[in-house]
């Protein structure tokens, strides 16, 4: 909404000062996320800008903390770069180990949460479903219940059934936490879904599963993928359940960061944080592109 030409001086001042205030709030939102990027290239083991960094002295910047991600925990970190070095890093470096864990767990969670959540969302979007509100309330509850209560409950339960300190335990816990996001995202996509297409498909002689894969699925796919990415990031970022449920073997990146922040605060955490910010930028862009695509399919266009 541009400033109209008849606006008085008061309105003009208000117009610009409002935008300045909004700009400041946007900076408040985005700066803390971006500030970790330059800090992670610090040559010194500090969490702040050194004077060398401020005068753009090349010596004040280094990649040592990124190298540390691969080296920390290795049996011979200072050897020459070779296949042996890579395999040492791959199997011994702590951060590499937790990265592998994080991806392994998050991928399984994405698969499980997306399939369970999409099915449930299909059911929830049908008007015939009895007790719709109550069911939705139950299925969304993992998002609302404070994490510490969830984690404590699961800790006792998984210890009793022998799943504590196993990958399966962490995967199941994260799946429960991730499904609400899938349910919400896919249900939102289903609201714009034209149900007569299902009948049209059936009318043309397609079996229900053919209708599902050939008609419903392509149309709701952007929503399903966004939901899956939400489930992925939920698991990828989650630390409270991991704190209670995982052993040393199942350490994930957030778990490693948690102990890093609490015990030995080193800029390696900032380097990891920078990589995580990059991952979230990729995920966010994907979700945005998918959302636009889905809007286009439904005929909503940006003005």
């Amino acid at each position: 909404m541009a400033l109209p030409s008849y606006a008085g001086p008061g309105e003009r001042i208000w117009y610009y000062s409002f935008r300045v205030v909004c700009g400041a709030i946007f900076l408040f939102l985005i700066l803390p996320v971006l500030i970790v990027v330059p800090l992670s290239f610090n040559a010194e083991p500090y969490f702040t800008f050194t004077s060398g960094m401020l005068s753009f002295d090349a010596d004040a910047f280094s990649l040592r903390w990124y190298a540390d991600i691969f080296k920390n925990g290795m049996s011979a970190p200072n050897d020459a770069f070779s296949w042996a070095w890579i395999s040492d890093s791959w199997s011994n470096a702590q951060w590499v180990h937790s990265t592998k864990n994080s991806f392994f767990i998050a991928i399984w969670v994405t698969i499980l949460a997306t399939s369970l959540g999409t099915l449930a969302a299909l059911g929830l979007s049908q008007s015939e479903l009895p007790f719709r509100g109550a069911l939705m309330g139950i299925l969304i509850s993992p998002m609302i219940v404070p994490l510490i209560i969830t984690a404590a409950g699961m800790y006792f339960f998984y210890s009793d059934v022998g799943l504590a300190q196993t990958y399966i335990g962490v995967i199941l816990a994260h799946t429960a936490l991730g499904t609400p996001f899938v349910v919400i995202t896919v249900t939102a996509t289903m609201i714009g879904f034209d149900r007569s297409l299902i009948r049209a498909g059936a009318n043309l002689g397609a079996q229900p599963h053919t209708v599902f894969f050939k008609v419903i699925m392509p149309l709701i796919l952007p929503g399903v993928i966004s939901g899956g990415l939400f489930a992925f990031i939920t698991s990828f970022d989650e630390v409270v359940a991991v704190l209670f449920l995982s052993g040393f073997e199942q350490r994930t990146i957030p778990r490693q960061m948690w102990s890093g922040i609490r015990e030995q605060i080193s800029p390696t955490i900032l380097a990891v944080a920078t990589i995580l910010v990059c991952i979230s930028i990729v995920l966010l862009s994907t979700v945005e592109i998918l959302r636009r695509r889905s809007e286009k399919m439904r005929g909503i266009r940006p003005v």
Binding site: L29, I30, P32, V33, V36, I233, F236, D237, V239, P254, M257, W258, I261, A273, L276, V277, S280, I281, L283, L284
Partner: peptide, 9 residues
Amino acid sequence: LPFWTSLLV
């Protein structure tokens, strides 16, 4: 972007 960025970050 902050919404998608890890809480720990």
